[in-house]
């Protein structure tokens, strides 16, 4: 999978590394700022209140 992506990246090595870094940061940002905030309230381990 990663090998396939690497082969699809255009340009010389420096450009490939730059694009790969941007891709990784983009995926990390998508997870941190979109996916996790959406996912987190659905998980069970963050309750601090007692039932009323």
């Amino acid at each position: 999978m990663y090998g396939w992506i690497w082969r699809k990246l255009p340009g010389p090595l420096a450009v490939r590394i730059t694009i790969a870094t941007i891709l990784i940061l983009g995926v990390a940002a998508l997870l941190l700022f979109v996916v996790f905030p959406w996912l987190e309230p659905k998980l069970w381990f963050n309750n601090v209140t007692t039932e009323q």
Binding site: A28, L31, F36, P37, E40
Partner: peptide, 16 residues
């Protein structure tokens, strides 16, 4: 991804 979620829970939520 799971490790990143731990980082999110422990540090990123603090920032927000």
């Amino acid at each position: 991804v799971v490790l990143l979620f731990v980082v999110y829970e422990l540090y990123i939520t603090d920032l927000f």
